[in-house]
């Protein structure tokens, strides 16, 4: 189900916790599983977590599948819905909004021709609003595919970034 490489990464997570607390690694394991699907998935459906992969992770860590599902749905960054090749999450919380967060989201929405929450028809982009990313001083900020934080996203910076995300 998951590549040997992903399993090795999951094992590294497991090693952080006491031997009888493998469950602690579920957040890392789901993240690793999601990363693998994101990097190998050809369609929006193939890039998000699904029943099989959550069950696989649960079995791997010897926890009930529904417990892994609870975790996958509780934390926002796990994609449970089909997602574009580039998921762009813009922080629009108050501090960011005061420094252009909302404008940035609107600007991207206009450029990509998709509303917030949507995925472009070619499956390339998903645009989401995010909650505080702990980077309000760098506003406007956005995350590409969960892990790549982009700061000071003025319209020019956004243009440049979108040009890279092809």
């Amino acid at each position: 189900m998951l590549s040997a490489q992903s399993l090795a990464l999951i094992d590294r997570e497991v090693a952080k916790y006491p031997a009888d607390q493998k469950r602690s690694a579920v957040m890392g394991a789901l993240r690793i599983a999601l990363e693998e699907r994101r990097s190998t998935g050809e369609t929006p459906e193939a890039r998000c977590l699904n029943q099989e992969v959550i069950e696989f992770v649960a079995n791997y860590l010897e926890i009930p599948p529904v417990a892994a599902y609870e975790v996958a749905t509780f934390y926002n960054m796990y994609d449970m819905k089909p997602v574009g090749k580039y998921k762009i999450t813009v922080c629009t919380n108050l501090p960011c909004a005061l420094s252009g967060g909302v404008n940035a989201a609107e600007y991207i929405s206009g450029k990509l021709g998709i509303a917030i929450g949507e995925t472009s028809t070619d499956g390339m982009y998903t645009l989401l609003e995010g909650e505080c990313m702990g980077a309000c001083g760098d506003a406007p900020v956005l995350l590409v595919n969960n892990h790549s934080m982009c700061s000071f996203m003025t319209p020019e910076a956004i243009d440049k970034k979108l040009a890279e995300l092809k």
């Binding site: 029943q51 959550i54 417990a67 609870e70």
Partner: peptide, 15 residues
Amino acid sequence: GMANRSEFSEILPFL
């Protein structure tokens, strides 16, 4: 389990 959070929390069996 109880999936999701806030008022979107839902009781469900695994998919």
